[in-house]
Design a protein around this nucleic acid. Structure first.
Lengths: 117, 117
DNA sequence: ATAGTTACTATCCTAAAGGTAACGGATAAC
DNA sequence: GTTATCCGTTACCTTTAGGATAGTAACTAT
């Protein structure tokens, strides 16, 4: 396979960074949830349930907990009459926006490619 | 949840594109394989086995088939003494480079954030 | 004839992800 | 006191991803 013909040096740090990113964003729902929060700002649990078509409360709850653990969203309990809970992105989560944009761009091009056979 | 405060309109096309992209690139290995091919150009099966630490031949074989199906890599059999097979990225696969770059950037920032507590 | 190389495939198994359906605690409205 | 809303949890099950181990086909070298 020889030496790199594309970049100076791979760099173990970049390799680890990539693996971490994949771990954190892995799964069917996390990126979709992040995108909803980008688009709509603050959302309640119920909003996210409706926005993420076909997700179940259990799964949504899990995903939100993981996103919170990884410092991508915050969870705040509002003292409203029927209790409500608000989720929003942290500043840190802004760093995932380029990932989402790139995925959408790739997806658009891929769909076009498929359509044109 | 109100109206968007961030972008004009979500757009069902972008939603579908995102879901397609996530489907195509899903899993523990695909993006790592694509990155190896970016870095090294043409690679044989054995090269990819060594570059993707801890992957098994069965899993690698599966991943490669899926990537080929989705038009991201090509597979060519070389008529060498012990048969060898070369994999490389298609032109179309270039479109995934921004995704990988964005993931790495996010991963680097995330690692820094974690280290700084 | 035996052993090695390359690129897999086959079989079996475990673990993680994801889904279904029902329930619970808090509060309030009717 | 029954019903409703909101945000979950619990128990259970199915599906998918991933891994371990061994084997195979084609060829080469010794």
């Amino acid at each position: 396979m020889g030496k790199s013909n594309f970049k100076s040096e791979p760099g173990i740090e970049r390799q680890l960074a990539l693996q971490d990113a994949l771990d954190i964003l892995r799964g069917k729902w996390k990126i979709l949830i992040l995108r909803s929060l980008y688009l709509y700002g603050t959302m309640r649990f119920k909003d996210l349930l409706e926005a993420s078509k076909n997700i179940t409360p259990k799964v949504l709850s899990n995903e939100l907990q993981q996103l919170e653990l990884n410092l991508l969203i915050t969870r705040t309990v509002n003292n409203t009459k029927p209790i409500t809970v608000s989720y929003e992105l942290t500043n840190h989560a802004i760093e995932t926006l380029p990932v989402i944009k790139a995925l959408i761009e790739f997806g658009l091009k891929h769909r076009k490619k498929i359509k044109d056979n």
